[in-house]
């Protein structure tokens, strides 16, 4: 329905993801908002493929974004689980061992 509408959707998704990453204090909630940011970027790539140059590399890059996001979610959640096993909490403010 037009190039601009897709760009607006992906921008709104990105901005909402940024708000989520900065505002939440639960580590898993931060990872959920990070997925929104990655999806906004992949949506942008696919939009440009359709409306600008019809080069299949846009779809290929969106696939790689999906792959990397899945790998990063897995490793990030493994780290969260380890953190929970040690500290018994998933509040970000309790991750202070490297502080000052």
């Amino acid at each position: 329905m037009g190039f601009y509408s897709y760009l607006v959707v992906s921008t709104i998704l990105f901005v909402l993801g940024v708000i989520g990453v900065l505002a939440r204090k639960n580590i898993i909630a931060i990872l959920l908002s990070l997925e929104l940011i990655l999806n906004a970027a992949a949506l942008n790539f696919v939009t440009y493929t359709r409306f600008v140059n019809n080069n299949i590399d846009g779809h290929v890059f969106a696939l790689f974004i999906i792959i990397v996001a899945a790998a990063e979610a897995a490793v990030g959640l493994a780290i969260v689980l380890r953190f929970f096993q040690i500290r018994e909490t998933i509040h970000v403010d309790d991750a202070t061992q490297l502080q000052g």
């Binding site: 900065l22 505002a23 204090k25 998933i90």
Partner: peptide, 12 residues
């Protein structure tokens, strides 16, 4: 652990 008014303001 899900954020309060101050964190959302900073986020916005």
């Amino acid at each position: 652990t899900m954020g309060n008014f101050r964190t959302y303001t900073i986020g916005i």
